[in-house]
Write a protein that binds this DNA or RNA. Structure first.
Lengths: 125, 125
DNA sequence: TATGCATATTCATATATTGGCATATGCCGT
DNA sequence: ACGGCATATGCCAATATATGAATATGCATA
């Protein structure tokens, strides 16, 4: 994963939000769609782009694709997410997204346990 | 200066090198052309792009345009340049550029004192 | 095998960014 | 006003990225 690819991934708000979410554990596309209040095709395309940049990878569990960071420990990525979290939280709606994520994962556990399990197989906290 | 603009500026090696150089003080276009081993039009266009993003600003001194960082203390920018310097110095040829910069500024003082003075008026160290 | 759900892909179009080449502008010294 | 130097701009083609609508794929379950 090269420097430039990292920055290319960082220079879009939606991608920033995805990175922030994935830093706290893997997610399936439908979670992302709901949290980002976007639509499936857009998110799918962002994920493809991010995958081409080498930033995320996806694994299929049943009908769900679970995405996670390729290298959550990449110094440049970590530093930036940390910095954004510390200094620009509102601009990026990082905190709001994480709150939504928590609420959502409760709901998912009840409504689609399969999806919840798949994510946990991939290392959810 | 917004987050996204900062990252847009960071996602090109040539722009990274320019930011690194400007962080150590203002420079004129001809310096940049020489250090980056590029040509005048390319550098001029990069500078315009960076100016539109709000990252640099230029001031004219006689026939020279002296460029400097708009906000050298911007946390996101500082953090990133620091991180790149610490962890990815070779990838970006930051150190080499700075060495070249030093050598160059000696030569400029001798050959085109006007340009050297202009830069110093703008706050060179 | 037919159906439904989650996700990906294709196509067409719009916009952004990059690069090369030629030319224009601004300022200086004569 | 003229020539030279430093810098910027305009134009055009190439490539990259983004967006919307329609459609295709993969998997599960009945």
């Amino acid at each position: 994963m090269e420097i430039i690819q990292v920055y290319k991934c960082l220079c879009d708000v939606q991608r920033l939000r995805i990175l922030n979410l994935l830093q706290h554990g893997p997610l399936c596309v439908c979670h992302l769609v709901e949290i980002l209040e976007s639509d499936q095709v857009k998110i799918s395309k962002q994920l493809r782009y991010m995958k081409e940049l080498g930033m995320v990878e996806g694994e299929r569990f049943a009908q769900w694709m679970i995405y996670s960071l390729t290298d959550a420990k990449h110094p440049l990525l970590r530093e930036n997410l940390k910095c954004l979290q510390d200094c620009y939280a509102e601009d990026t709606s990082f905190a709001k997204d994480l709150r939504q994520r928590a609420a959502l994962s409760e709901r998912i556990k009840a409504e689609t346990p399969g999806c919840a399990e798949a994510i946990c197989d991939q290392g959810c906290q």
